[in-house]
Design a protein around this nucleic acid. Sequence first.
DNA 1: ATGATATACCTAAACGTTTAGGTATCACAG
DNA 2: CTGTGATACCTAAACGTTTAGGTATATCAT
Lengths: 349, 349
Amino acid sequence: MAVTLKDISAKTGINTCSVSHVLNNHPRAMELKAETRERIRLVAQEMGYTRNEIARSMVTGRNDVIAFVSSDIGTWEYTGKIMSGIMEEATQRKFAVKVYHLTHSTPDNIMRQLTEQRVAGIIFHSDKNVDFDFIRNEAGKKQIPCATVNLSSTSAGIGVTTDDFQGVRDAVKYLAGLGHRRISYISYKPRPQFAVNRENGFIAGMKEFVPGSGKPRIAYSIGMENDKNEPLIRNMLSESDAKRPTAIICYADYIACNVLQIAYQMRIEVPEELSVIGFADLEVAKYATVPLTTVAQPFEQMGRETANMLIDTIKNKRSDILDKVENRKLPVRLVVRKSTAAPRKCGSS
Amino acid sequence: MAVTLKDISAKTGINTCSVSHVLNNHPRAMELKAETRERIRLVAQEMGYTRNEIARSMVTGRNDVIAFVSSDIGTWEYTGKIMSGIMEEATQRKFAVKVYHLTHSTPDNIMRQLTEQRVAGIIFHSDKNVDFDFIRNEAGKKQIPCATVNLSSTSAGIGVTTDDFQGVRDAVKYLAGLGHRRISYISYKPRPQFAVNRENGFIAGMKEFVPGSGKPRIAYSIGMENDKNEPLIRNMLSESDAKRPTAIICYADYIACNVLQIAYQMRIEVPEELSVIGFADLEVAKYATVPLTTVAQPFEQMGRETANMLIDTIKNKRSDILDKVENRKLPVRLVVRKSTAAPRKCGSS
DNA sequence: ATGATATACCTAAACGTTTAGGTATCACAG
DNA sequence: CTGTGATACCTAAACGTTTAGGTATATCAT
């Protein structure tokens, strides 16, 4: 169907391998007359030749494709940002990206596809740690480099996350600076690694910046669904004025939005009577009716750096490098919007 | 490196092609003794054989990969949902999905990659119509089936969108049913096809359900950035009580959120004094402080149906089918939340 | 006239499959 | 004891590249 080197060879009278050399700018193409080279290029152009990467892959044994395996495509908005970062880096380094959705397939099924298709490396991304171990082990056996992104697992390998600890600690510092002392934190119940890190950031921040504030006040959400958090938050905001927190930090923007919703229903004004801080900086933060102060995670950069590390590993592929451990924690940044202010009673106003 | 058919052949003493037949459950495998088949399978298992799809692709001339080409990865939250739908359908039909980001590359560069990598079909997705024509033409020349998703272009080909007209018309109908008569609409200035369709839905709805309401009130936003719409909206809400709209329908959820923000700043209560309706049903709609009534688009379904149509085309590949025109408009659904209610003055309350 | 060197090409083989066709052995009918 | 058909395999070639090596001709010094 498509034009092949053989077709060009037939038309120019030059053998396929010389044609190949010319069209790939292989050094050996220099052995041919400049005029011949020109003629080959011209004919290739005219006939609409595009090289067959599949055939090329077969003979070179390389396949410049990385796999992005995720359980969260279409679930969380940030997954798209991570992908965008991966794509940027991959494109720049001449790698293509294939996507695999864990939800539509079992891990072993995906692992089979990945090996059959001879992907050069795997980037894994999931909000559940469980699936990963299987993929990581299998990839290890098959010598396929593997990295994780936004997955703060404790297991070995290469991976990129954000500095969750620092993020919440910074938030506490900022609130303390505004004069807040009764700060509560909403954490996440199953306590995956990232939730633990954020929680520890809160505890450390309170100890450091609000000394003498006693036992840190932490409540546990059990998930993102809107209604699940309502009792928890309502309870938190129903305390007497003297005990009620003047600020709440949430482990996620969505939870912070829930707080805003319930505060609104309870006629508690934000930020005058209550400051609220989220985590992630999703669109909901910008578009909340009172725009949300939040800890912004650099999702695109996470994607870029993960792809970068993975492709490095692929390119220096040696078995010892497959066992390398490198975890990068990218710094996060507090974005101050309108949901935070100095507390009413104690302070300047 | 990896185990090949030849290795299995060597170990079992059976030639590669018979081994191939067995491992692919090819009918001709039946020519072998059951015992031999078992032995081959066992050895393959033991040696950890996984077939090389690259080699297979080369000899069969097929490559079960579809390309998702988008300019919006990481830009709009719904892109992930569309992808998820595509992946679901593709996985089920044994196709892999490669992703290409228009932003990190030029259209002709991407088109070259697509042909070099011999993808079987292309799904195109962009908020700008421009890029598409080039890709569509080139794909046409190369006989690569091509479909669009969420791109209401007027050009030929296969594509899936939502029924934008119906969506806004339904929204008007619903508001009219609540007793609203002064309904304004915020449209989008460059007026791409989808914006025109939604606008026409508004005009038709007003004519049908709010007869005698005069010239439809339409304002034009010039984009999504928060600050760009503020003067427009502020202006709209600053009219005297007798003239101010009691309801605003927006062409997008983000704009509706802007309306909520500004209404809040202006102390106009939603929904008591103002009803607001968005379009898309993104996360911001659920998490707005007053959860937003909006027209929900079935993004995942769009993805599924697009992939479905594309793969059908790939499988019956004949040149005449490449010119087929099929545009599906999926129905949308009004999701009523808390940003809409009967207007205060005229009506039940 | 001989050999060395450079120039401008060409050939053969390989990558790992699949496809289409071929063959050796045996049982059994006539 | 010849021919037919089934059984259980095997061989050769192809897909489109790339890699490594080979060769024919011309040029020039000795």
